[in-house]
Nucleic acid binder design. Structure first.
Lengths: 146, 146
DNA sequence: GGTTGTTAGTTACAAAAACGACTATTACAT
DNA sequence: ATGTAATAGTCGTTTTTGTAACTAACAACC
């Protein structure tokens, strides 16, 4: 009972993207949640610090396109667990530099290897050329400013 | 300070998919929210009923991969606004058939045209061949059962 | 040097989502 | 026919988000 053959939710990009994002996040989510009690925003912050090293909340926000309140709360929880330390900038005392502790590094390294394996498993079922284009298209779409 | 050149969040598929999904959903979200006070799960249910016609909550759940509690609450709110009517199945009294009212149809038709335009705008910046492959890859990924 | 504007980050409150337990009805097996 | 399991859908409670207002520090300008 397709009321309009010109339109189907299944072709609507935002819908498709959400379905794919949710489904493909599930398994990884279980790992960081069950193993470390972390939330999505927390592993994101952890990964940014693990990959790029010491940086400020603001910079993470720019790179990850995350709102500052999300980062603020994620940083709080990561700091409570001693996965990172905060250090005030001496010349501009509004700014805080964030850095993983050795404990945080360990968690990051562990999750990174899970992520890598999982990513490879996801990509495995797909055509190699498709994956290259997929990444590029996704990066373009991620920049869309509604 | 890339600690491991083999891994970057920016290449991690679940991350990329989430970024693209969030960014590309924003503008459409604003429309159904501002114009009709609807939530994400509500427009999904509305669209399924608009496109496929009368169906049960269960069937929507299967098609949209939505949990039944999400559907239940979305249906409640849509029923309050008189966008749909519920009708008990006479032979199996657990089941409820859902159907859009004329008012619901109007909302659906309006939002459908917004969605169509928005979708076209999104696709416009992309290579046509890429879009075809993108849809196919996304459908594959959406089926991944973590 | 005081006023105005910006920026980094936090907090409080309201809105929404997640999760599990629950009811009611039907199916199935012995 | 009766106990057990399965299914459709709802409800209550707890987590998470989203929004906007807030503090504190700096900048810029006259």
């Amino acid at each position: 009972m397709h009321d309009d053959p010109d339109f189907d939710v299944q072709d609507f990009l935002p819908y498709l993207l959400n379905q794919a994002a949710e489904a493909s996040s599930l398994e990884f989510q279980r790992v960081y949640k069950d193993r470390y009690g972390m939330l999505r925003n927390e592993w994101r912050v952890l990964f940014h610090l693990g990959i790029y090293g010491r940086m400020t909340a603001r910079d993470i926000g720019v790179r990850a396109q995350m709102h500052k309140t999300k980062i603020s709360r994620a940083v709080q929880r990561l700091a409570e667990r001693r996965y990172l330390v905060r250090e005030r900038d001496e010349t501009d005392r509004r700014v805080e530099h964030l850095e993983l502790t050795p404990a945080g590094q360990k968690v990051y390294v562990d999750l990174r290897s899970v992520a890598r394996d999982y990513n490879e498993a996801l990509v495995e079922g797909l055509d190699g050329e498709d994956v290259v284009r997929l990444r590029s298209v996704l990066r373009t779409l991620a920049k869309v400013r509604g």
